[in-house]
Amino acid sequence: MEVPILKQGAVLIATFQAALSDADLNHLRMGLVQQVVKFRSRAVIVDVTAMDVMDSFASRTLREIAHMIRLRGAETVIVGIQPEVAFAMVQLGLTLEGVATALDLEEGLAYLTQKFKNTD
């Protein structure tokens, strides 16, 4: 399953589907980093609204994405984690430490706009 990556100005938006396999996630990780380089994006928003399970592998992949993108000088925001999914994640000890989070896409964009304003 391909993850669509949308380019909106300096921001890349990747929208996850519900049933992503490990291979899909690995594929996405490579794809995102390449595109950040290609478009010289300042930030990446990963929208996980459709994901009904976030296990240790998915969570680790998100962290890796965020770290790799930071090495490219850009910022990552994870948006759309569902309340039930968040509850299951903290039970598992998965807290996405060091990665920015926001309620949804709108909030994620607002967060980045604010951030860009402060650094410009």
Partner: peptide, 11 residues
């Protein structure tokens, strides 16, 4: 955990 889960929702 409550604090951490809230942060995952951006709060």
């Amino acid at each position: 955990q409550t604090v951490e889960a809230s942060r995952l929702l951006g709060a």
